[in-house]
């Protein structure tokens, strides 16, 4: 990827707070139109990295180019081209969903009609006249994203948009995020949900303790692990001893409800199981980013 086409270029950025190295030599590039995820546990340095890219903080060292320009100090020319979604509560007091959008839109010179149209995109058209504090957590989060998009920016920054949402609300939000990507926006977002990053992102950077541990397409990261595939069956369908004897099986163990087979060659294992007519209720789980994280950091991923 050439840097001229890059929306975001970060080179060896560092930021310390006293002894704490919040961001410790981070470099990455985000292409135009890319959906880029920064993931890692709390305190990994994701938010600080994002704030430096947005121009809210000055890095101690290193260079940031956002759409070819430096975001620090406050670059008024750049601001209309970026959209930043903040906490779910960053709203004006006592205004309805529509009024919030119109007010934020006016900061960018956006007409009231255009602002109100954003409610459609995030599926809040029927909540237009509800006051912000009457909305549910997921609805507020979607409104907050709509506010970040109201001026049709080229690059959108989302800081943990799906945090603290119930599973249904998270999935609704995924649809919104995909819709934004279809509009050709570059999206940089942070999350601590590995499964979500895997589904949504073109590429992910995995961060921990201020550093990027790995950066690539989620599928490439997972494949690079050479982690076994887990095949899970109902308990009792196949005896453990038979399973261990199958071609390609590395390990098999049984608990109260199921039998789990680990293999790096799932094809022969699945055909052997098919021959025995044991495919009912069968589940196949390949390695996930969670496994990537575990391998990279040597510890369990905790969100």
């Amino acid at each position: 990827m050439t840097e001229e086409r890059a929306a975001v270029v970060v080179r060896d950025v560092r930021k310390s707070y006293g002894e704490l190295k919040a961001v410790d030599g981070v470099s990455f590039t985000v292409a135009e139109g890319e959906f880029f995820g920064i993931l890692g546990p709390n305190g990994a340095g994701k938010t600080t990295t994002l704030e430096i890219v947005e121009g809210l903080r000055e890095p101690d060292s290193g260079e940031v180019r956002l759409l070819g320009e430096s975001p620090w100090p406050r670059n008024v020319k750049l601001l209309p081209r970026i959209g930043v979604q903040l906490q779910a509560s960053s709203f004006f007091e006592k205004l309805t969903a529509k009024e919030q959008l119109q007010t934020f839109g006016s900061l960018y010179g956006v007409s009231h009609g255009t602002a109100a149209d954003m409610l459609e995109l995030v599926g809040l058209a029927d909540k237009a006249n509800e006051q912000e504090n009457k909305l549910s957590g997921g609805q507020r989060q979607r409104l907050s994203i709509a506010c970040a998009l109201v001026h049709d920016p080229d690059v959108v920054f989302l800081d943990e948009p799906t945090a603290a949402l119930d599973p249904q609300a998270r999935r609704n939000l995924w649809d919104v995020l995909r819709a934004i990507k279809e509009r050709g926006k570059t999206i940089v977002y942070t999350t601590h949900y590995l499964d979500e990053a895997e589904i949504l992102c073109d590429r992910v950077a995995i961060m921990d303790t201020g550093r990027i541990l790995a950066l690539d397409r989620p599928a490439v990261l997972v494949r690079g692990l050479d982690a076994p595939t887990h095949v899970t069956l109902q308990k009792g369908v196949v005896p453990v001893a038979d399973a261990v004897a199958m071609e390609g099986v590395e390990e098999a163990h049984e608990d109260e409800v199921s039998l789990t087979i680990s293999t790096r060659r799932p094809a022969p294992v699945l055909s052997a199981l098919a021959e025995r007519g044991a495919l009912d209720g069968l589940q196949v789980r390949t390695a996930t980013l969670e496994d990537v994280f575990l391998t990279l950091t040597g510890r369990e991923y905790r969100a």
């Binding site: 947005e54 809210l56 406050r74 601001l79 709203f91 900061l107 506010c147």
Partner: peptide
């Protein structure tokens, strides 16, 4: 909200 204002032109 201040941050949001700061991020707007």
């Amino acid at each position: 909200v201040l941050r949001r204002i700061r991020l707007a032109p």
